[in-house]
Nucleic acid binder design. Structure first.
Lengths: 149, 149
DNA sequence: GCCATTTACATAGCTTGCTATCTAAAAACA
DNA sequence: TGTTTTTAGATAGCAAGCTATGTAAATGGC
């Protein structure tokens, strides 16, 4: 079978992800929230404080990626890092009131974009889409875990 | 309804795309081909020469992104740019024999990764997955086109 | 024929991802 | 106790995406 971009799951997934990111960035811009801040925002929304390592795990990104994201969030006054007295290597990250105050807006934006993206799909197809993505992710995660890191 | 990453189409799509990219990079590394080179490789595989603008359109990336990709490909001796005598603003891009010689390998790698990613899905589900991605892309592209550029 | 507009590309600057590698603290163990 | 190993983060360096903006060539009116 012909290998066209339209029939390559990887190419299509990358393409869709870039379109999601563009739209998200556009809609989040006024709030001062960048897309990469979102997993951190949601993880700490309940007022808890977590380590960088735990945040990286939840966002499914590598440690240096999370370090850079937290640096930008700190610059933008979205988080504060406090040295962990129990373990001097690590810091506990918590949201500032500024960030707390933006969570609802972010949730609305995310819902709106998901709604837009899926607007041509009936409820059953939406569930299917999410479920299929989940199954693809599980396979690729297993592969990723199998070789190193 | 709860807004968890597992139920956000955007988050899941981004996650899947990153996993695809990691695996692709790993498997393409020995060949010296970076993932972003692929759309260029396939567009020029027949020996034709295209402008940067046309390559950007086919890869669905912005012009400066394609410019940077072509710079890296030139550095890696994958393409040659020849000034277009008809239009002194533009250059025609063609693959070098080095790049031509890698196309088959790249095709094999792409097929293998798509096969891996979809290995848990039956043929019908695979078609569904690609089709749903296509419909999501179409909606987001329309939105993107509607506001500027 | 000349000026205004459009077009093709270049460049600057930023985000978000990655790998590889370093440092310092904590934990394990001999 | 002292040494080795593991763990948490930091840092360097690169890829690949984006927007905004600049420049030079081509095009389109008038």
């Amino acid at each position: 079978m012909a290998l066209t971009r339209e029939s390559s799951a990887g190419y299509m997934t990358n393409w869709a992800a870039r379109l999601f990111a563009r739209e998200l960035e556009r809609q989040l811009a006024p709030s001062g929230i960048a897309p990469a801040y979102m997993p951190v925002l949601f993880a700490l929304a309940d007022g808890s404080a977590l380590t960088q390592k735990e945040l990286a795990r939840r966002a499914a990104v590598e440690q240096p990626t999370m370090a850079a994201t937290l640096n930008r969030m700190e610059r933008d006054a979205m988080i504060i890092r406090t040295r962990d007295p129990e373990d001097k290597r690590s810091a506990l990250v918590a949201l500032t009131p500024l960030a707390q105050g933006k969570i609802e807006t972010v949730e609305r934006v995310v819902s709106a974009i998901n709604e837009l993206a899926l607007e041509q799909l009936v409820p059953d197809e939406r569930r299917q889409f999410i479920a299929l993505l989940g199954r693809v992710i599980r396979v690729l995660e297993a592969q990723d875990g199998a070789l190193g890191n």
